Amino acid sequence: NDFICFYDWAECRLIQQIDVTVKNLYWAESGDLVAIASDTSFYILKYNRELVFSHFDSGRPTDEEGVEDAFEVRHENDERIRTGIWVGDCFIYNNSSWKLNYCVGGEVTTMYHLDRPMYLLGYMANQSRVYLVDKEFNVIGYTLLLSLIEYKTLVMRGDLDKANEILPTIPKEQHNNVAHFLESRGMIEDALEIATDPDYRFELAIQLGRLEIAKEIAEEVQSESKWKQLGDLAMSSGKLQLAEDCMKYAMDLSGLLLLYSSLGDAEGVSKLACLAKEQGKNNVAFMCLFMLGRLEDCLQLLVESNRIPEAALLARSYLPSKVSEIVALWRKDL
């Protein structure tokens, strides 16, 4: 029982032997996809029909393991399936953790958490509902939009024009679900257009380097962490004006100090000194004043911050005329 053999129906010729312990087998109606369930996991395979027919038509001999590459592993998941059904290219199943999931193109989505063991009966397309039954013969239906399944199926088949025709029929609340699916397929631009959640759209915009879109979202959400993330990306991209705006919104004073000092922007450093002092960021304020050569203001800042010893050292090094005054304050402080 540690392998399964597939044969063609007409002449019982061996198509392929697959080394896996099989608990159950679920074929899609198209005959091109099959789910193989074992005790600990399941596999979704695609049947390469044309390759197999070509092999048999050529008259080449078939070895004991069948036709090479007759099946292609599309997806493997470490879940134990209780029951499963196919709807198009979508595999719906419930697992041993009492979750009702569906899998399209290798992406698994959890629809519902079940409160007891249940068994799949089928899917009614006209109602967009999947039905399950429990051991007491209670039948329960859950919504699974047919339009959503069709959209994902068409995307998997590469028929994007038809998929876009179906998209308007999918409710807005499901658009983030669609966007996550598209992202998993590497279609990040399309995911950004469809997604509605601001946080998710921001992450997609950052991935794509679409900084203006990310800025619009950050202005809408007003999140300090988003401004900082956008500012770092803008800085690394050389978009210094955007980086400055983001750092101001995020109150990233250290970042602004680095930016202004690198640009030699004395006016910016001066404004930053005032802002840092207002925000109680005395270290940044001191650095700004020191870079501007405003030594008396540096000294006054240290005194106001009750850092008299540092003020005394500064006076001894740069403002000898102030030493006696600062030493007197130091003695008084002691």
Rank of each mutant, 00 (worst) to 15 (best):
T143E: 15
M111D: 12
P117F: 14
Y123N: 10
D199F: 13
R129C: 11
T153W: 00
Y119S: 05
C90D: 06
H180T: 10
C103T: 05
A195I: 10
L121D: 05
G106R: 08
M118Y: 01
L132I: 07
V178G: 06
T143R: 10
Y123I: 14
G186H: 12
L145T: 10
N176E: 15
L144I: 14
L154A: 02
I140L: 14
G141A: 10
L145R: 07
L144D: 08
A195M: 14
T109Y: 13
G84W: 09
F137W: 15
Y102D: 07
Y93P: 03
I149V: 11
Y131G: 10
M124C: 10
S128C: 14
C103W: 07
D190N: 11
E150W: 08
I194A: 07
V87I: 15
T169C: 05
R82Y: 09
S184C: 04
N95I: 02
D115R: 10
N176L: 14
E150F: 06
D89W: 07
Y151W: 01
E107C: 00
L167P: 06
C103H: 00
N138V: 07
I194Y: 04
I194L: 09
K99C: 07
F91N: 08
V178E: 08
V108W: 09
L160E: 14
L132W: 03
K172V: 07
C90A: 14
K152S: 10
N101R: 06
A179N: 05
K99Q: 15
I194E: 07
I166L: 02
M124I: 15
L120F: 04
S96P: 02
P171N: 08
W86H: 10
R80W: 02
L154T: 05
H113R: 13
T196G: 15
A191T: 02
L211R: 02
L145V: 01
D134F: 05
E150S: 12
W98H: 13
H175Y: 11
N138L: 08
Q127K: 14
T153L: 00
R201D: 03
R80D: 12
I194W: 09
H180E: 13
E193S: 08
F181W: 00
M118I: 09
D199N: 14
L208E: 04
A191R: 03
G106N: 12
N94V: 05
D199V: 13
V104D: 06
R80M: 13
L167H: 06
Q207R: 13
R80F: 09
D199K: 05
K135G: 02
G106S: 11
I206Q: 12
F91Y: 12
A195F: 11
L160S: 11
V130F: 00
P117Y: 15
L192Y: 03
L167D: 10
G106W: 14
Y131H: 15
P168F: 08
V108C: 12
N176G: 15
E203K: 11
I149F: 01
I166A: 04
